[in-house]
Amino acid sequence: MTTILVTGGTGTLGRHVTEGLRADGHEVRVLSRHAQPYAVDLRAGGTGLDTALAGVETVVHCASNQRGGDEKAADHLIAAARRAGVGHLVYISIAGVDRVPFGYYQSKLAVERRIEESGLGFTILRATQFHDLVVTLLNGLAKPPVLLLPAGVPDQPVEVTEVADRLAELALGAPAGRVPDMGGPEVRSFDSLARAYLRATGRRRTVAQVPLFGRTYRAFRDGKHLAPEGAVGKVTFEEYLGRRFGG
């Protein structure tokens, strides 16, 4: 069976990728800052990274940090993967990273470019936002009595386990370059997602939409972060909410 390293293997996405690959009988190494025996901070690099990659055939790169450092982490990972003779590097990116001028998206795009130019066999999958992320955002927005939303912004949330299954499938195949984007089953207004969240959690809030300004807002409002042609996800937002909140 294939030996696979999953970076960020204890995170929201990486742990599901790890579980799926192990269930299929593959040897999976989990790399994160605190997971022994491969506790490595990718941003720092170091000899621990070479140890973790020794004998690895495929890397699934799920580790990411919205506070920065993804490019440096990718540089260290790519260099170590070359030294180890890794044959396949699979990377999870975000739909619209080349169309939305948002700092974190630009960082993800920069990592894509590094991987494409690395000389390694690679596969890049872009996905829309996970259901979990949407709920985390709404949890924060719903703290005041009025839930304020950016006016006119759509979204297409996808189930994280479905993305994990797709990544595992890609990891077991040959390098495929940039594959089609993956999105949730429905393009929805953020207003409708917020109202579904309030119903599921039993919270009473006034919902108001606020127009914003700037290139980033316009890109989100225009749906540049969506993947309507890749609406292959099956789990709807309401189904996710029902599982999470028991509705």
Rank of each mutant, 00 (worst) to 15 (best):
L125K: 02
G14M: 07
G48D: 09
T236C: 06
T47D: 15
A81F: 03
L149R: 03
V60M: 01
P37L: 08
K143Q: 14
V153P: 00
L170W: 02
G119K: 07
H225W: 01
I124S: 07
G46R: 09
T7G: 06
L241I: 12
K224L: 02
T128E: 02
R33W: 13
P180V: 11
V207L: 10
V59I: 14
Y197M: 14
G177V: 14
V6Y: 14
L42E: 02
I124E: 09
K108P: 10
P37S: 04
Y197A: 02
Y104I: 09
V210L: 14
E71Y: 00
D155S: 15
G87E: 08
Q36D: 10
D50C: 03
R29H: 04
F220E: 00
A110H: 09
C62N: 07
P37A: 00
T58F: 05
V153D: 08
A73Y: 03
R15I: 10
P211R: 07
G9C: 12
A151L: 09
E238I: 02
V90N: 04
P228D: 08
D155R: 15
A200W: 06
G177W: 14
L148N: 00
G55D: 13
T2K: 13
R113M: 10
T136Q: 15
V210P: 11
S192L: 13
Y197E: 05
K234E: 15
R83E: 00
R243Y: 12
I78N: 04
R243S: 12
G85T: 11
G246V: 14
